[in-house]
C-alpha cells in the first residue's frame, strides 16, 4: 500500500519543530505501524537524510515506551492498544496519516516524536509504593485478599505508564495515571498504612510537575491502551478528600 505521512520533526527541545511530508510507498499491509516507520527510516537513511526518531522497545504493548499520536489520537483510534500494536491492515491504500508526539507541558519533547516522561517517575517516587524492606515480609498467604479486591487492584495495576491519558486530555491532566496507582495500592490491605500519605504526596507532586486538573471529559479512559476505567479518578478524589480532612484535623 502507498501512504502519505505528515510527521512532526523537531531536532531538539529548543528547535521550533514542524510537520514534514513523507511518501511511504509499497508498505506490506501485514506489517505493524512501527515496522512501516522502520521501512520509511531505512529509505531516509539510505538517501542521506536523518531518520524519524520515535520511542519504542518491546513492540508488544506492555513496556509503555511507544508514544505516537496517530491522526490526532494518542496510540491511534483503535481502542485498548498501544501504537506498537497498530497494524497497517487497519489503513487504506492512499491514506494520509498524521504522526505527532504525545503533547503536554509536563512531557517536553526530546526529539521528533520522543518525549520526556520522567515526571511520571517522580510521581511514583513521591508515594506510589508500599514500604516493605526486603526480607521483612510475612508468608504470602498469611494475609488473604478477597478476589474482588485483588481483581480491582489488578485492573488498576495494569497501567503501563505510557502517558496517553495525559496526551489525550485537553488539560494534560495525569489523574488517570495517578488514580490508577492509588487504586492499585489502596485496594489492598497491604496498602492501607500509607494510604493517606500516598495520595497526598502523589497528587501534590502531580501538581508540581505542571499536569492540569480533571474536568470529567473521559478522553483519558478512551485512549488508555489498558482500558483503565475513569472510576479510579473518582476513587482518587475520595481518598484525597479523606486524606486532606485527616491532615487538617491532625494539624489543628
Amino acid at each position: 500500500m502507498n501512504l502519505t505521512l505528515k510527521v512532526w520533526r523537531q531536532k531538539n527541545p529548543d528547535d521550533h519543530g514542524r510537520i514534514e511530508t513523507y511518501e511511504a510507498k509499497d508498505i506490506p499491509e501485514e506489517c505493524s505501524f512501527l515496522e512501516m516507520l522502520d521501512i520509511v527510516n531505512e529509505r531516509i537513511i539510505t538517501e542521506g537524510g536523518d531518520p524519524i526518531h520515535f520511542d519504542h522497545d518491546c513492540r508488544e504493548g506492555i513496556c509503555g515506551t511507544c508514544s505516537l499520536t496517530i491522526n490526532g489520537i494518542p496510540h491511534s483510534k483503535e481502542r485498548g492498544i498501544t501504537a506498537c500494536q497498530v497494524h497497517m491492515r487497519k489503513f487504506r491504500d492512499g491514506d494520509t496519516i498524521w504522526i505527532e508526539p504525545f503533547r503536554a507541558r509536563a512531557f517536553p519533547i526530546v526529539r521528533d516524536l520522543v518525549v520526556d516522561r520522567t515526571a511520571f517517575d517522580r510521581i511514583i517516587a513521591a508515594g506510589g509504593y508500599i514500604s516493605v524492606r526486603t526480607g521483612s515480609a510475612q508468608d504470602a498467604n498469611a494475609l488473604p485478599v478477597s478476589k474482588d479486591d485483588a481483581d480491582a487492584s489488578f485492573d488498576a495495576a495494569a497501567c503501563i505508564g505510557c502517558g496517553a491519558c495525559v496526551a489525550a486530555c485537553k488539560n494534560a491532566s495525569a489523574m488517570l495515571f495517578v488514580g490508577a496507582k492509588a487504586s492499585h495500592l489502596n485496594h489492598l490491605p497491604q496498602g492501607q498504612p500509607e494510604k493517606d500519605r500516598r495520595v497526598l504526596a502523589m497528587v501534590r507532586q502531580m501538581d508540581a510537575e505542571g499536569f492540569g486538573n480533571c474536568t470529567n471529559q473521559y478522553e483519558c479512559e478512551a485512549v488508555c491502551p489498558k482500558s483503565i476505567s475513569a472510576d479510579v479518578i473518582a476513587k482518587l478524589n475520595r481518598d484525597y478528600a479523606i486524606a486532606v480532612a485527616k491532615e487538617a484535623t491532625t494539624a489543628s
Binding site: 478477597s146 478476589k147 485483588a150 492499585h184 497491604q190
Partner: peptide, 22 residues
Amino acid sequence: ANIIDQCVAQGVPFAREYGGLL
C-alpha cells in the same frame, strides 16, 4: 518462597481464589 512473600507485601496483585488465598 521468600520472593512470593516479598512481592505480595509490595502489593503485587497475584491471581487469587475466592477464599482470598493465592
